[in-house]
């Protein structure tokens, strides 16, 4: 296959960026999207041009490091028949001769570092604000001390599969990180161990979410649509329920 790429090139956070067109030849349908970018970079390096910077690591869809917007959808969800990360999108999803637009996640709280790589440290700060259970090492009770009903456990698990890639923010017209935040809130709210900090956690996490500059949620649903791990959209309602309940609790005031 031969592919035409239009890639966002931006030297650093403060530089102006623009879309630049490249040709990639001899692309095989079995390649992953990132292997196709590798091929482009090998070619650029040999020509003496600067390779395209992009984040990636595990290349098996679990670490959450990769993520670019492909033809207008995060992780190329619009091209893929199934939910996917960028590294698990394969070139067989594209036609020979296709022109593909490749852009970084675009959101104020995710400033571009270079080309397609962005800074997602805001996510870590949301977790720091309460996305944990305070259990010091060694202080844990016996694991079977608190049974968890299977429904609760499964719902906690569904939410806990979030990989923190940021596709939800990239896809959201409001650049809201509500699905990311709601996934953690729901994960911990479903478990008995998460109850003591349940209503203080939500206040502090939402406060940091807003301080970081993410937009508000207007229930549009693009986030859940592009989520590679299919974090349920209804976790956002779980967050809202807990947030409303927290207004009537003294925790964390």
């Amino acid at each position: 296959m031969n592919i035409t790429l239009r890639i966002w090139r931006q030297a650093n956070a403060s530089a102006e960026g623009r879309m630049v067109t490249y040709q990639v030849q001899d692309v095989s349908a079995d390649m992953s999207f990132l292997e196709m970018l590798d091929l482009l970079n090998e070619d650029l390096t040999l020509k003496g041009e600067e390779p395209v910077a992009f984040d990636h690591d595990c290349r098996e869809g679990i670490c959450g490091m990769c993520g670019v917007v492909i033809n207008g959808t995060a992780h190329g969800r619009g091209e893929s028949p199934v939910p996917t990360t960028t590294c698990q999108l394969h070139m067989r999803s594209f036609e020979d001769g296709a022109t593909i637009d490749v852009e970084p996640w675009r959101a104020g709280p995710f400033p571009v570092i270079k080309d397609l790589a962005v800074d997602r440290s805001a996510f870590d700060r949301i977790i720091q604000a309460g996305g944990f259970i305070s259990a010091n090492t060694g202080a844990a009770p016996e694991a079977h001390a608190a049974p968890v009903g299977k429904l609760q456990a499964d719902r906690a698990f569904d939410a806990a599969t979030c990989i923190g890639c940021g596709a939800c923010v990239a896809a959201c017209p409001n650049s809201s990180a509500m699905l990311f935040t709601a996934a953690k809130i729901t994960h911990l709210a479903m478990l008995p161990q998460g109850q003591p900090e349940r209503y203080s956690r939500i206040k502090t996490m939402i406060a940091v979410h807003d301080e970081e500059g993410f937009g508000g949620c207007t229930n549009i649903g693009e986030c859940a649509e592009v989520c590679p791990k299919q974090i349920p959209f209804d976790t956002i309602s779980q967050l809202n329920r807990d947030l409303i309940a927290s207004l009537f609790k003294k925790d964390g005031k």
Binding site: N71, R77, E103, R106, P109, P173, N174, G215, E222, A224
Partner: peptide, 15 residues
């Protein structure tokens, strides 16, 4: 404020 740069290409999936 959270969207300082627009996408060159944007496709809607759910909205």
């Amino acid at each position: 404020a959270a969207n300082p740069t627009a996408y060159a290409a944007k496709k809607k999936l759910a909205q």
